Amino acid sequence: MFMHNKRLQYTVRVAEPNPVLASLMLEQFGGADGELAAAMRYFTQGLGETDAGRKDLLIDIATEELSHLEVIGSIVAMLNKGAKAQLAESAMEEAELYLSMTAGGNSHTQSLLYGGGPSLTNSSGVPWTAAYIDSRGDPTCDLRSNIAAESRAKIVYERLINVTDDPGIKDALGFLMTREIAHQKSFEKALYAIENNFPSGKLPGIAKYANVYVNTSQGDGDVEGPWNSGEQWDRIDDLTLTMPIDDGDGTASVGLDATDAEVAEALAARTASATSENPTTGVDLGAGPGAGRVTAQDMGAADDIQDAMKLADAM
């Protein structure tokens, strides 16, 4: 059961309305790294968690994220308050009202459809979707994803802070950004409280492949570091050694019963390419300048086309 306290977790003080800034703020309301996505991610993880400590942590943070949704939504509503009043009461001239509504990417949607209230969209007007929730039901996998999500959200808050000079908004956004740091610390502790937390899941990796680094992108710009060289890695620079890297012949095969094998052979025979023929195609029939070499009864036609192109370029 939830109880709502009418006081915000952090006081929102907005100096003046700004619908354009309100549109940008929606990224943390209904965006992929926003507060609603975080709340739903952690809440659903908490419901499925069997460890008492992690369950408590996830539900605590999920609930706090809802309070952050309320803070960022209140900022959006305050930034839109002037435009909402003008639109509702028709107090501005038509041209001025139109400009105020269309000044920012999503502000017209907020004004017309949501009456200036925060919409569950990102800053471009894309509706929130549960596809943002990337939980997998394994604590080591999900905790790493949560750490990354908090990191991404922190960066978005930094960028929002940099695009406003409103001191009250900067103050509130600074609080929200800092809570992302605190949540990341908690998730890090929870991850490393699991004794064997890498790799994720139960099954071990195959030993002979676990230490292999394949230098597949070669040439100028090759750099060696602890991520690809040293005693922790068996580095492969000769790519022929990876084709295949196992003991097979590198081809795909399947075991078919007699009936399937017969049908597969019939299909292959019916759709086989005639490699000895060079048929005339629609490209050949419609070839014009720039077509390149084409198949024609008189190959001189292709040369005529090339000559015409050269003449045109010379002119």
Rank of each mutant, 00 (worst) to 15 (best):
E65A: 10
L8K: 03
L79A: 08
A266C: 08
D222R: 07
L66S: 01
R41D: 10
N215R: 11
E150I: 01
G174C: 04
A153G: 10
S276I: 04
I155D: 11
A91M: 10
Q86K: 11
A91G: 11
A85K: 12
E224M: 05
T240S: 15
K202Y: 06
R136H: 12
R41V: 01
T140W: 00
Y98H: 09
T275H: 08
L173P: 00
P279Q: 01
W233V: 07
A148N: 09
S145A: 05
G105S: 09
L120I: 07
E27Q: 12
S67K: 09
Q184W: 07
R144G: 00
M177S: 12
E231G: 07
A85Y: 09
I206G: 00
G115M: 01
Q232R: 12
G117C: 04
T259S: 13
Y213W: 09
T140V: 05
L267G: 15
L112R: 09
A207V: 14
I194C: 04
Y10Q: 13
A264W: 14
P139K: 00
G290E: 04
E64M: 08
S229Y: 06
N197Q: 06
I133T: 00
G82T: 03
S124T: 09
M315R: 12
S200W: 04
H108R: 13
L24N: 08
A252F: 15
G174D: 03
G225N: 07
R54H: 10
K81Q: 15
N228Q: 03
V126N: 04
S273K: 13
S186N: 03
M78I: 05
G282W: 07
S107G: 03
E65K: 11
Q232D: 12
M309W: 10
G282P: 02
P204A: 11
F187I: 00
V212I: 15
L8A: 14
P127D: 03
G73D: 01
A38D: 00
T242V: 14
D313Y: 11
K154F: 12
Y209H: 12
V294T: 15
L58T: 05
I147L: 09
G230H: 06
G225Q: 01
D51G: 05
D238F: 08
E150T: 02
T280D: 00
I206C: 03
